[in-house]
Design a protein around this nucleic acid. Structure first.
Lengths: 208, 208
DNA sequence: ACACATAAGAGAACGATGTTTACATTGAGC
DNA sequence: GCTCAATGTAAACATCGTTCTCTTATGTGT
């Protein structure tokens, strides 16, 4: 059913068909969001960049927000890959937890364009099950690691939620420059490692 | 220089002058952002709500983004007030730290409209010094408390940054529903208190 | 080789939006 | 009562999101 099209540009000169407008639009959108922020992206300008009429993208996306949503999905999948890869590089459980967090931070630093679309574009994820699902699958990695570390489900949930929150907070605050004034010299994200490390070293044993 | 205008509605019937269009526009914008998300707010609809022509708001705001920026400043000030108040209610330093975090979470829960504009509208704070300054002053509260708790500036900075990140992450993730699947039953933010509490209980002594 | 169904763009049109400009109305102070 | 600044209206413009209808490659079966 789904027609998988290779992005091979046939050398037909000008080319009436674009070849792969879908990814071209995504790339243009990412670029615009990166350059001018989430509210600086328009379908018109993106299609201009792709060298195509404004109506053409509507063959590939239902509307503007769906375009953003598909990009968000791509970002989520990419994030999941990188987190999984980082986790699989170490064997000890707490190490896995640490590396998952660092992978998250690395992602937000290396792909600020995706990150902005995923979390800074005011996207209503509840309207896009695929976006919800892929993001959730990222969280599940942390969730399951927490359950291997902690003895009770309550403690595991708490560790997962607060770990995710800490890392996500660090990522968003650095992404939008809120932390720029506080940790000026450290642009290198490895400086954030002790923060995550220390968080992991919490006793996390008693009380409810 | 600045004309401080009281929002007193003269009973002049229909009223050519609005009375206080500035705050009326802010309120309308907050309502729209709350109802339909950051991208669901338009100057046109907001001025319609305020019962005024689309051009009228431009007497009070340079452009759409400036309007958002002013609302963000209001939100920052409100946040600072509530954090300060919460801090002053307890005497012990670590308690102050805890209460500042809880005040932050309370703010995000009680004023989701302001919070969305402040952090979820893709606002470029670097273009609005006042927004940057007021947000920074909120962070300074945590910053100074950290320096009272920790012995070295490095540890203090780390505690401040990670504390701010943890709380901000919890706030944003719950605000946009990302955590809804993980902590379903707990809508009451007091459930988040142990997370912050536990974070505070970290030894935070050795290593760099 | 050919006709044809179809995917994918073109082009024009619509209403809504952000913003500017020129003009009108109001109230306050002299 | 006149003037002036503040604040509104009305109309205009470019841009945007979106939807039509029409056109053109493309590849498939015969």
């Amino acid at each position: 059913m789904v027609l998988r099209k290779e992005a091979i540009k046939k050398k037909t000169g000008g080319a009436y068909r674009h070849g792969d407008l879908k990814t071209a639009m995504k790339r243009a959108a990412l670029r615009l969001v990166q350059e001018k922020g989430p509210r600086g992206f328009s379908i018109n300008e993106a299609s201009r960049l792709a060298g195509v009429t404004v109506a053409a993208p509507y063959r590939h996306f239902a509307d503007k927000e769906s375009l953003l949503a598909e990009i968000a999905v791509d970002g989520n999948v990419l994030l999941l890959q990188q987190v999984n890869e980082a986790v699989s590089r170490v064997s000890e459980v707490k190490q896995k937890m640490l590396e998952s967090g660092m992978a998250y931070l690395r992602f937000s630093a290396n792909h600020p364009d995706y990150f902005k679309v995923m979390f800074g574009a005011g996207l209503d994820r509840s309207k896009y099950p695929e976006a919800e699902r892929t993001l959730r699958s990222c969280f599940d990695v942390i969730w399951e690691l927490s359950h291997l570390i902690e003895s009770t489900p309550e403690l595991a949930a708490q560790r997962a939620v607060s770990g995710w929150a800490l890392v996500h907070g660090l990522a968003t605050l650095t992404a939008d420059g809120s932390l720029a004034t506080a940790i000026k010299p450290q642009t290198h994200l490895e400086h954030l490692r002790p923060l995550v490390q220390r968080f992991l070293d919490q006793p996390y044993s008693t009380t409810t």
